[in-house]
Structures are given as structure tokens and as C-alpha cells.
Design a protein around this nucleic acid. Sequence first.
DNA 1: GGAAATTTGTTCGTATGTATA
DNA 2: TTATACATACGAACAAATTTC
Lengths: 85, 85
Amino acid sequence: MTELAPDEPKFEQVAAILRARIASGEYPPRTRVPSELKLVAEFGINSRTAAKALQALVEAGLTRRVRGMGSFVVPAEGDGAPEQG
Amino acid sequence: MTELAPDEPKFEQVAAILRARIASGEYPPRTRVPSELKLVAEFGINSRTAAKALQALVEAGLTRRVRGMGSFVVPAEGDGAPEQG
DNA sequence: GGAAATTTGTTCGTATGTATA
DNA sequence: TTATACATACGAACAAATTTC
């Protein structure tokens, strides 16, 4: 279980970690990032806090969330297939 | 207490009502819109739901929220004094 | 078509912290 | 200090969409 520093909101810290993983290629375009429950297990946070972290990625334009499916990394512009939605 | 229809999320309905009031001039630019607690009292919703409605206005670019002060209607562009923030 | 599991969406309730007046 | 108001976080329940069996 990853430890989080107390000096910054948890949801922002988790979002920052996920952003770094996306940037590093750990979560390539069109693949899924961890679900709320996975983040709960990994970081020891509440599911609502996990949801807020995932929502922050959406607002940053990095992912899309699809009910019943998960959060998916948004492909960079001009990479081939047209985007849905 | 205003009644809300059950076929649309409450936070969206409340946000829509507030948007209409802003558009009508009931909440002029630079004035405050109702606080979370006021919305709780007016619509009979939970404070977290009220917060979500107010946040929706921010994301629509209609208001700004200031901790300890409230939610303020953002002036239309090119109306005079420069905006803060 | 149904059942179950997974995942996100909405709502409620509560507590605590931070900022302003 | 007190009151007001937003921010963060936890816990819980249920709804809705998707996938898999």
C-alpha cells in the first residue's frame, strides 16, 4: 500500500501519480487505468476519494470514464483512428 | 421548498435553475449566488449535492467559488474592470 | 434471456480543516 | 470568538451500464 504525504490533498496526490504513469507509458493510450476499487486497495483511500482522483484526470483531458467499463487513457491528437464521443 | 423531478440528477436540476437565474439577471455579475446551506434549505437536498450543483456552475464558467465567501457570478467579458484570479 | 461481477454515477450523512468576515 | 462558507475525506446505499458466464 502506497503511503501518501499529508501536506497535499489525497485525491490530488493520487491523480498526480496516475498522470505520471500515463506520461511514462505505463498506461498507454486507449487502455484502462485502475478502477476506483483498485485505487482504494493500492492507496488505502476511500472510494469517493478515488473517484475524485479519476475525475481529475478527466478534467485534465487525460482520460474518459465509461460507466460499467472503466477509465480509459485518451489518445493524443492526430494519432490515427477518430475518437468516439 | 422547491420540488425536483426524479428523472434527472438533482445536482443538474439545481444547477439549471441557478443558471436560469443568472441569465435572467436575478443574480447579477459579481454578486453571490446562494450558498450550499441555502440550497439545502431551498431544495431539500444534501449539502454534498448542493456543492456539486455549485461546482457545475464553476465548470460552466458562470461562477467562481471562494472559500469563506461564497460563489460569485463571473462578469461577462469586456464589461469594464479586469477580473481577479 | 438471465445471473453475477465489475465499474462508474448519484445521493445521503457526518466529520474535520481552512478561509473570510 | 463566533458565524458563515467552501474543501477534503470517510462511510454507506443504491442505480445504471458493461462484460462475462
